[in-house]
Amino acid sequence: MCRKILMHVAVDKGAEENKSFAFYIQYLSDNGYVTPPMTPWVDAIRKNGNVAVHEIPATDEGRAVGTLIFTEQLLRLVYLMEHLAAKYAS
């Protein structure tokens, strides 16, 4: 689910639909939604999502919680901070 959110964020921010997952990750990076310091934890969302998509075993609790925390932070930075900046910084 968290991996899929990355794709939806990219499309919401202007990426073309029906592209590869790698395209969406690159789009987020190229357009400043994922900065260099964020890259390792966005990559963790990707890697953990790949395991969940392509393997049968359940994800352990630590990996699941970490992935949710990283996804939450990405959503905060992309949407909440953008909203607050528009509201208070203008």
Rank of each mutant, 00 (worst) to 15 (best):
L80T: 12
D43V: 07
M7N: 09
L75D: 01
G14S: 00
S29F: 15
W41Q: 07
D12F: 09
N48S: 14
A44R: 10
P57W: 05
M38Y: 06
Q73G: 01
H83Y: 14
D12Y: 00
E72M: 12
L77D: 04
A52W: 03
E61I: 14
A58N: 11
K87G: 01
L6M: 05
K47A: 12
E17P: 02
S29K: 15
V51D: 01
Y24G: 04
E72Q: 05
D43C: 09
A10Y: 09
K87W: 14
R76W: 00
W41C: 02
Y88W: 13
H54D: 06
R63M: 11
P36A: 03
L28E: 06
A86W: 07
S29E: 12
L84N: 04
K19R: 15
A44H: 08
K87H: 11
T67Q: 15
S90D: 08
K47Q: 09
A89C: 13
G66H: 08
E55D: 08
M38A: 11
A89R: 11
K13N: 13
I69R: 10
H54W: 11
L75Q: 04
L68E: 04
V78G: 02
G66M: 12
H54C: 06
L77Q: 10
C2D: 08
M1V: 07
M38R: 09
C2A: 11
E72Y: 11
N48D: 09
S20C: 02
Y27S: 04
A15R: 00
N48L: 10
R46G: 02
D12S: 12
N48M: 08
Y79K: 00
P57G: 04
E72N: 10
M38P: 14
Y88P: 07
E72W: 12
P57K: 09
F21S: 08
A22W: 00
D12M: 07
E82A: 15
P36I: 05
V51P: 02
S29V: 15
K47S: 01
Q26H: 10
W41E: 02
L77F: 06
R46S: 06
A86M: 09
N18K: 06
A22C: 01
H8C: 09
V34M: 01
L28W: 14
H83N: 10
L84Q: 11
K13F: 10
L28N: 04
G49R: 07
I5H: 02
D60W: 09
L28F: 15
E82H: 13
K4F: 06
K47Y: 13
M81K: 10
T35C: 01
A86V: 05
D30K: 06
E61A: 14
R46M: 03
I69W: 11
F21V: 01
C2S: 14
M7C: 02
V42W: 04
E55I: 05
K4Y: 10
T67M: 15
N50H: 05
Y79M: 02
P40C: 04
M1S: 06
Y79V: 03
M81R: 06
I5L: 08
V78L: 00
L77S: 04
K87L: 13
A85D: 15
R63L: 13
